[in-house]
Structure formats: C-alpha cells, structure tokens
Design a protein around this nucleic acid. Structure first.
Length: 319
DNA sequence: ATTCTTCCAGTCCCTGCTGA
DNA sequence: TCAGCAGGGACTGGAAGAAT
C-alpha cells in the first residue's frame, strides 16, 4: 500500500517505513516480491527505485506452444529486444513478448522467423558476411579489397538483429557493459581476419557525434590488438553531420571526403579498417581511398564492421 | 581526457534470537 | 534442540565527482 501510494520508493525509504534492517528488506522482502512480479526494480546504483509491477501479462510457458528444438535454440541464441521501459528481454522470453505485443500468432511467427533467419544466414561464411558484391554495385571505384559485416543490422519484418540491438542501445544509452559485451562477441571475428589477411595496421573510423563514452575507444581497448595503429582523424565541422542523417549516396561520399583525414604517414602491408555500422560503405571506401592516395598500403585494405545494412540504406530508417 | 576518490546499493557470510 | 529468520559487518562493483 505504501509503495502504491508513493508510486516509487527507494530501499532506504522502505527501511525507515517498515523499521527493519536493510539486509532483511533486501533478502526477505524485495527479492521475493520482485521474484513474484509484484514489484519491479528501476534504475541502477546509486539511484534505485522500486514500484508496483504493472499487471502481469499472461505468462506463456514454452510448453504451451509447439516449437521444435532448432527454432528454440536459434531464438534463444539470437533474439533480443529492449522493451520501451528499458528492460532487456532475451531468447524465447523476448520472442513471446514481441509476438504478444504485435498480436502475432506464436507458432506461425516462429516458422516465419526461422525462414527469414535462414535466408540471411546464407550470406554468412565462417560467421562473416562478405559485402564485396554490394560495394561493387554501389561505387564506381572501390578502394577496399574486402568488406565484411559481422552481422546485418536488421532483417526484414523482425527488425534489428541481436548485434544490431546491442549496438544501438550501447551507443545511445552510453552503456559500458553493453559495449564490452559487443567487444566480447566480435573479438574472435576480428582476430580471425587479422590472422587470415596478415594485417599489420589497424585503423578505427572515428565517430562524428561527441559522446561521453565512445564505442570505438572501448573497442580499441577491449580488442587489445597487437598491430600498429593507422591514425585516422575526423575533422570537426561547425555542425556535426552523422552519415546516417544523409540519405543520398553522393552526400555520404562528399561528407566522408571532407571530414575524414588519414594523418598517418607510415607504411603498412595489409590494413584493417574497423567501423561500427555501415550503411553504404562510403566512409570506409573514402578512407581506403585516402590511404591508397598516400601510398601507405602495399598490400590489401580490408574493412570490417560490426553491423551492416543488407540493402543500400535500410539502416537509416531503422535508426 | 584520464585517473583517483568517494559514496552507495546490494550481496555474502556469519551470529544471535525466537518459537515450536 | 533446531529450523528459520533477522541483523551486523565486511565486501563488491559501479557511478558521480574531484583532481590531475
């Protein structure tokens, strides 16, 4: 009743009100009530509030609908959504939530998900998506020898992929834990590329929008690569114009041409360029061009990105 | 921009109390 | 006597703020 009246209360308030110890409150009351879905916890230390849980929607147990093991494993491994309230829902749990929210029949949607997922999975080889064809069809002059996505940013109907969700929310909510999670997921892929193409120089595409914690910095630290670094600088313009805001290819190329500077002068054999999200590939292609112009690279320039769009610009509308 | 310090929610582990 | 719960104190991890 107290919480109902107050809407949301802190643990300390409850300790005062109930006259019990903090430990007792956490151990015997809050834990239980949250477990029973009576209360929900909002926020993270040092600011945490508890409030009454909204009437729980009908819990559908996995047993209540037919789903084969393949689909179950796949969904558990690859489905992730963030609810409007900022709650992270993963796997089957998240899938059921998503279906309920969109008024979709579970079984049929599961089948469709499986089908769509497989369709996109075909593009993956050794866990990487080769985007060479797309590059060639997008640009007249391609300066990258290879471009890989670790995953698509989104897939049709079902929206962002797991990596796409993580990336968006890590950047937007400035969540270091999420960023580190991403690093953990992508590190094996990057290590693999470095080995395969005998990379001796790594360049990180700098971000346009200033933020407290930059994903690229976390990445740089977390990846802990032993190769030399290719210094790439992004020039500050009067108004920062992120690539994702430009929806014409020529604009994107112009933007990249004018704001990206390769400040390095050293020489490399094979260079790997790392970006977080690729829409058209304009930034990476232009950066590669600048490296070529400076004759800094004797061998290949490989691009890799955490997520990429399937078609030209679907990344824009999604963001 | 980075590192150091402080603060605080939450946990862990142990002890003490109570009532059956 | 003993199960089960409450409480004390030390500890942890993360965030905010201060200092460099």
């Amino acid at each position: 009743k107290y919480i109902k009246d107050k809407k949301h209360v802190s643990a300390n308030e409850l300790v005062d009100y109930l006259g019990i110890s903090r430990q007792a409150l956490f151990k015997h009351h809050l834990a239980k009530l949250i477990d029973d879905h009576v209360l929900v916890k909002n926020g993270r230390p040092p600011k945490v509030y508890y409030s009454i849980a909204t009437p729980v929607k009908l819990e559908i147990k996995e047993k209540s609908f037919n789903i084969n093991n393949e689909a179950k494993n796949l969904i558990n491994h690859d489905f992730l959504i963030i609810t409007p309230a900022g709650e992270r829902k993963e796997g089957l749990d998240g899938f059921i939530y998503w279906c309920q929210k969109n008024n979709l029949p579970l079984e049929k949607t599961t089948e469709e998900y499986l089908k769509t997922f497989k369709k996109y999975e075909k593009y993956k080889k050794d866990g990487l998506i080769d985007s060479e064809e797309k590059l060639k069809s997008t640009f007249k002059n391609v300066f990258l020898d290879k471009l890989f996505y670790i995953d698509f940013y989104s897939i049709e109907r079902f929206g962002k992929t797991k990596l796409g969700q993580l990336l968006l929310y890590a950047k937007q909510s400035q969540n270091k834990k999420l960023m580190q999670e991403i690093v953990g997921i992508i590190k094996p892929n990057i290590d693999k590329i470095i080995k395969k193409f005998k990379i001796d120089g790594v360049g990180f595409i700098p971000p346009t929008v200033k933020r407290e914690t930059q994903l690229m910095k976390v990445l740089e630290k977390g990846l802990n690569l032993h190769s030399r670094k290719v210094e790439i600088i992004k020039i500050k313009t009067a108004v920062a114009v992120p690539q994702k805001t430009l929806n014409k290819l020529v604009d994107r190329i112009e933007n990249a041409k004018n704001t990206i500077i390769v400040s390095d002068n050293s020489s490399f054999n094979n260079i790997l360029l790392i970006d977080d999200a690729v829409g058209s590939g304009a930034t990476l292609n232009e950066t590669a061009k600048k490296i070529r112009d400076k004759k800094m690279c004797q061998g290949k320039i490989i691009g890799i990105t955490i997520t990429g769009s399937f078609n030209g610009f679907d990344v824009i509308s999604e963001v």
